[in-house]
Each structure stands twice: as C-alpha cells, then as structure tokens.
Design a protein around this nucleic acid. Structure first.
Lengths: 224, 224
DNA sequence: GCATTCATTAATGTATACATTATAGTGATG
DNA sequence: CATCACTATAATGTATACATTAATGAATGC
C-alpha cells in the first residue's frame, strides 16, 4: 500500500469523529443527538454510529438513552474533583512504579523531551504547544509504570476532562511551576526514589486540582 | 408489570450471558468464538452479540479480531501482578477517601455486615460464601470513597480477575488474616484516620497479591 | 516436488428492512 | 379548562440482506 493510512472501519471512523466533535465542543455538553442525525452527518448508516455511541458511553464521554439519543456529558465541578482525585492516585502510583523500575536514559527520553518542549513552549508563551507537551509528559510517565491496565484506565479518565482543560488553559496562570514539578519527578525517577517521585507528583496533581477548581468557581463555570 | 424483571434488551442479555459464560469458564480462556456461533447459542441475531462483544472488549475481558471472532483473554501471572497492583492503588485510595469523609454507622453498615458474613462463612468453612462477602466488603469500601469513577474503574478491574479468583479460592489457605485486616480498615475509617486506613488496606492487598502469585507459581498455573 | 497464483468460501462490516415502543398530540369528557 | 385515553409517529432494537475481505486450497508452472 502506498499511503500510510490504514483502512479504518466505519465504526472506528465514527468513534474517532465523534470524539473529535465532543472534544472540540462541536457537540455541545448536555446536547442530545439521535442515531439518525449523526449517521447522516457522518455519511454512514446507523449501525456503525450506534456502535460508536455505545463505545463512547463506556468511555464515560456520553450517555445513551432510548429516545433521546446520545447525550454529551457535561463536566461539573464535582466531576472535576472526582477526575483529578483519581488522576492523582493513578499518576502518582505510576511515578512510584516508574522509579522502582529504574528505567535507563533511553526509556526516560520521552519525559526529558516533553519537559524540553514545555520549556520552549513556555518561553514562547505558546499555550497550545505547552498543553500538548504536558499531555505527553503525563502519558509518558504512566507508560513508564509498565502497567498496561494503568495506562488504559488513565487515558480514559484524561479523556473525560479533555474538553474542560481546553477551556481552563486560557484562564489559568502561566504554568511555570508545573515545569519545575515535572523536573523534580524526573529526577526522583532517575534516582530510583519511588517515595519522592510519588510524593512530588501527588502534590503537583493536587495543586493543579485546587487551582482548576478555583478557576471554575471564580469564573462561575458550573458546567463545561 | 407483574414481575420484577425489567425488560432487558437483547444486547444487555448477550452481554450478561457472555460475562457469565466467561466467568464460569464455559468459554475457556484463550478460546475463540465467532459472532454466528454465539448468536445461535444465545438464540438471537448477530447484531446484539456483536455489540456485546465490543463492550466486553472494552471491559478488557476479550479481544475481537476480524476473522477469529471473540477471544477470551487468559490471565497470566503478569496480568495478575498488573491487576493487583492497580487494585491496591485504587482500593487503598478509596479507604483513605472513606476515612476522610467520616461516614456514619448507617453508611458503614455494608462494611460491618460484610465482615460479619465473612466471620460466619469462615466458621462454617464455606469458601463460596466467604468470597461473596469479601467481594461485598471491597465493593462497599470503594463505594464509600464517594468517587463514582473510582467505583466504575475498580469494578472493571475486579471483573478481569474474577475467573482467576474462583480457582485460587480453593488453593489458598483459609483467609483468617483477611478478616482481621478488614476489621482494622473499618476501625481506621470509623476513627477518620485516612493514613492508617490507606496503609492497612494497602498492606492487605499487597499480601494478597504476593500470596496469589505464589500460589500460581507453585501450582504451575501460567494461564487462567 | 515446491511455490505461486487464482478461485472459492466463510466471516465480518455495513446497510436496510422490520418490529417494538415510548412520546407527543389530538380529541373527548368531566 | 383540565385530564385522560387513544392514536399517530418517530426513534430505537433487532434481524436480515448485501458487500467486502481475508484465508484456504487447488491447480499450474517451474
């Protein structure tokens, strides 16, 4: 085959497209969408759309109700709290696990690269690039835990808060401290110090949580 | 309606039935099953079976491959390690969360009931009843965290190890220490002592993990 | 005798047809 | 005017038909 694009099944296309629409806010939080509508919009029959809807429901992005179609789940302040508490637990466990495994420099390179990218982005005040690098850091950290199930679960939870993060990104202060935190986590992992890696990352996530919740409340953003 | 059984959709029925078949081992670990076969077996068309297969795949119980049908995922020693590490993290976080919320006695009653049931089952040497009560304790503990997402995620991970636990149940020593551990967790929650609740439950799960892994290796059970 | 290619077949992926069911709307009745 | 029942309708849930595709096996050429 000449093009790198592997053949995607219609269900996969639908799942991907719907996720994009949800993350971008093109399917508004709280809005309902019938199978037929979405099928027409995506240019396919109801069957793959229906399957995609079920998958997205299980991923915690939407709910599907018999005559109301697919409802895009809004993210409330309480949801943000739940999600960040869970992310704190999962990622700090990953940090400890990564430190315990004593990865070599090559294995650590995604972390170092992500930190470098974050530094550059911060110098350029390019928030989009910073968010992308921050995501990469967190994903790489979880991957380093070596626990594939932890990776899966964390990805799913991160997805649930993706839309909210796009919005708070422009409301939060410049994330200078984040970069420092990440550096300290990396150092602890390098040193094989699971305790410190856990504690530092845990504190980082908890601070992030408090900051974001504060932003939501200050800006009266009760739903995202 | 006169009967309490609410109408289940065929997809729900298929999902439920397939889960039961997988948990019971009637669909053997590692075995493959085509859509058509399962549809005939369950007395329905391919459509709901196909949907159920996708859901079970997302729940981490099976994989679905184009021409091979649904493959029931075997649980290896490494899987057990992954799962118990994750459960340790999730449940001990739940224990800490429960303690922090200071639930009243009524909220704690599922825990006390479960412990009582475990005591009775142990006195009767009724392992099945003990396992059921143990499950109830862990589920109630996670529910007490108040984090709905934590509940969902934990349920999913527990399901992945359900089949293995049915087997190790008869290979492990009588779980006398478990009951004591659970009692200490309950006491810590009562006292609002998140640190202790976390530490005690964490130790409990880690000991369980070590014991189960030991049993698997001793009995040469490389796949379950 | 072995490898390669082509055809056949079986299973999936998707579309569509059909059955079921909940909801909205209309009309009648108190 | 409000309420209840009934009907019409629209959306879903399921079955089935159809198209696509990968795997198996046979046949042919080397």
């Amino acid at each position: 085959m000449t093009d790198g694009a592997q053949a995607m099944t219609a269900t996969e296309t639908a799942t991907f497209e719907l996720r994009e629409l949800i993350f971008a806010g093109d399917l508004a939080p709280g809005s309902n969408h019938l199978e037929g509508e979405l099928a027409a919009r995506l240019g396919m029959s109801r069957t793959p759309v229906r399957e995609a809807m079920m998958l997205l429901q299980q991923q915690g992005l939407v709910t599907v109700q018999p005559r109301r179609g697919m409802r895009v789940l809004p993210i409330s302040v309480k949801d943000m709290e739940e999600i960040y508490e869970l992310l704190t637990v999962l990622e700090s466990a990953a940090a400890a696990g990564a430190a315990a495994r004593q990865p070599d420099e090559m294995a650590l390179s995604p972390l170092t690269q992500a930190i470098a990218d974050m530094d550059h982005a911060l110098a350029d005040e390019d928030l989009i690039a910073w968010a992308r690098a921050d995501d990469a850091f967190h994903a790489a950290l979880v991957a380093l835990s070596g626990n594939q199930r932890l990776v899966r679960v964390t990805e799913q939870i991160v997805d649930q808060v993706r839309r909210a993060r796009r919005i708070t990104l422009y409301l939060r202060p410049l994330p200078v401290k984040s970069n420092d935190d990440h550096w300290r986590v990396l150092e602890a992992i390098r040193a094989g110090d699971a305790e410190t890696a856990h504690a530092v990352h845990r504190a980082h996530r908890q601070e992030t949580k408090v900051m974001l919740i504060g932003i939501l409340k200050k800006n009266q953003l009760r739903q995202l």
